Amino acid sequence: MSTHEVLAAEVSLVSVGDNEVLSTLINPLRRKIQQVNADEAYNTRVCYHVLKNKGITPSIPPRSNAGY
């Protein structure tokens, strides 16, 4: 099923990076999440690790300064 529902949202201070709150958003959810669509701020090893451990497929574009 593809509902594109927003299941979680977080408002944080300007000093907190988007990628720092991913586990805070994902962990309390009781639903099975198949895929996460996020912006390039979430393109970090930590975010990919969190999603992989939960069995979630990431859909995250590379950062503009990304390398191999």
Rank of each mutant, 00 (worst) to 15 (best):
V16K: 04
E20C: 10
N19S: 12
S12E: 01
L22K: 05
K52W: 10
L22E: 02
Y42M: 09
N53I: 04
V21R: 06
A38Q: 08
A66I: 10
N53R: 10
A8K: 07
S59K: 15
L13R: 12
Q34K: 15
L22Y: 04
S23G: 00
S23V: 06
A41R: 03
H49Q: 15
E5N: 04
S12D: 00
Q34H: 15
R45Q: 13
T3C: 09
I26Y: 02
N37C: 15
L25W: 05
Q34C: 10
V50F: 04
G67V: 11
R45I: 07
S15T: 15
K52F: 12
A8V: 04
T57M: 12
S59W: 11
L13K: 09
I33F: 12
Y68H: 01
H4A: 09
R63P: 06
T44R: 02
K32C: 04
L25T: 02
Y68D: 04
A38M: 07
C47Y: 07
L25V: 02
H49E: 14
A8M: 11
K54M: 03
V14P: 00
N65K: 08
K32N: 01
K54H: 08
P62C: 06
L7Q: 04
S15Y: 01
A66E: 13
G55F: 08
T57C: 08
G67H: 13
H4V: 09
N27R: 10
P58S: 00
Y42D: 02
T44F: 09
V11Q: 07
M1F: 14
Q35S: 15
L25M: 15
P61G: 04
A38H: 09
V36D: 03
E10Q: 07
R63F: 02
E5T: 03
D39T: 04
N19P: 01
S59N: 13
L51P: 01
N43E: 10
D18K: 01
L13A: 13
R63Q: 09
H49W: 13
R31L: 06
S64E: 12
S15G: 06
S15A: 08
V46E: 15
N43K: 14
E40G: 13
K54Y: 05
N65L: 13
N27A: 10
L29I: 09
N65A: 09
A38F: 06
I60F: 11
D18L: 00
V36T: 11
D18V: 03
E20W: 06
N37F: 15
V21A: 03
E5L: 12
V50M: 02
L22H: 00
N27M: 01
V46C: 14
A8T: 06
I60L: 05
A38R: 15
I60P: 11
V11K: 05
K54R: 09
T3L: 12
Y48W: 05
S64G: 11
G67W: 11
H49G: 08
N43S: 14
V36Y: 07
T44M: 12
L29Q: 03
V36N: 02
N37V: 15
P62W: 05
N53C: 09
I26S: 03
P28G: 03
N65G: 04
Q34D: 14
E5W: 03
Q34P: 07
K32D: 06
P61N: 05
S59P: 08
H49N: 09
A38C: 07
S59H: 14
G17A: 12
Q34W: 12
K52N: 12
T3K: 11
E20Y: 01
A9V: 00
P62E: 05
V14K: 13
G55Q: 05
V11A: 10
T3V: 06
I60R: 01
